[in-house]
Amino acid sequence: MKIGFIGCGNMGGAMMHGILDSGKCTPQELMASDALEKALEARKEEMGILAAKDNKETAAFADVLFLAVKPQYYQSVIEEIRDTVSMDQILVTIAPGKTLEWLADQFGKPLKIIRTMPNTPAMVKEGMMGMCPNENVTAEDMETVRDICSGFSKTEIIGEHLMDVVTAVSGSSPAYVFMFIEAMADAAVADGMPRAQAYTFAAQAVLGSAKMVLETGKHPGELKDMVCSPGGTTIEAVRVLEEKGMRSAVFEAMKACVKKSRDM
């Protein structure tokens, strides 16, 4: 299986690391290209992958081709590789707002395209990825791509009408969580805890709490109630979070994120 990446920045690099570390292909079966020659050379030295001279070479090489560039570069990249790609390949996109219909119009011919939305926890092999195939993608094709991506992420097949929601709830949400961790750590520092220790306590609390949701199957509200003893410290903190509008702030932030994704 030959895998290609057009774009090898933070997201593309994380995905490539996960694919190689999990043995989904060898470095000589993975080719990348990037507009920044310095970034491409760094990935080649770091992982031992093949470095293409241009995007056309990567497109011609790959059985599965990931378009891992920012949304504003999709049109120019597609123009460059349009005549090179074919129905023998599977194309995987990661750009918010770029619909399957838009992609089909840009390529101007029938292709197998899977629209996805990964997130940065792929860098530590704990990613979450929504996936949506077009009508040319077979069940076998989907399993091939899901297997490749399992090296860095959990995957779920969803309807395209939910892709912008995926952007808000998992694609962009690591930023919200980082802000929460930072705020908790700042508060701990204000009360005398050393900075490095504060980040460890806050981050591990978030990690453990998320694991409880996933592994117990309990509703988050039920798990919250388990911590809130009558008249205790936790319910007092929860009262203040409710007073300050934490839920509303998160709700409105995600609504804004979905709107921005749909408008891109």
Rank of each mutant, 00 (worst) to 15 (best):
H219A: 13
P174Y: 02
L40T: 04
D191W: 15
V124E: 02
N55G: 02
A168N: 02
G97Q: 00
F66I: 11
W102I: 03
E80A: 09
K112V: 03
I78Q: 04
V177Y: 06
S173L: 08
A52D: 01
K70W: 04
L103P: 03
A253S: 12
M129I: 15
A203H: 06
K260V: 08
V258I: 13
C228A: 15
A35R: 14
T58C: 05
G4I: 02
I19G: 06
A104N: 14
A183F: 10
V213A: 13
R146F: 00
C132F: 04
E222W: 09
S86D: 08
T155L: 04
A210V: 11
A122L: 01
T233R: 08
E37L: 14
K259L: 11
W102N: 15
L50E: 00
V258Q: 09
A139H: 07
S150C: 07
E101D: 13
D164V: 13
G4E: 01
D225P: 08
D164T: 01
A35C: 09
G7I: 02
E140S: 12
E46Q: 12
V137P: 01
M179I: 12
M11A: 00
G12R: 04
S209M: 05
D147Q: 12
K44T: 09
Y176G: 02
E156C: 14
M47P: 02
R262A: 15
K2S: 15
K224V: 05
K38E: 15
Y176A: 11
S22K: 06
F61I: 13
E243K: 11
A202R: 02
G171Y: 07
T116A: 10
F201D: 02
K244Y: 10
M47C: 15
L162I: 00
F201W: 14
V124I: 14
I81R: 03
T167M: 05
C228Q: 01
K244E: 09
K154S: 08
L65S: 03
T155W: 03
T234V: 12
D164W: 09
M131G: 10
E160N: 03
M163C: 03
G245P: 11
A202S: 15
H161L: 07
P230F: 09
V137K: 06
Y74K: 00
M212S: 09
K70Q: 12
V206Q: 07
A122H: 02
A187H: 10
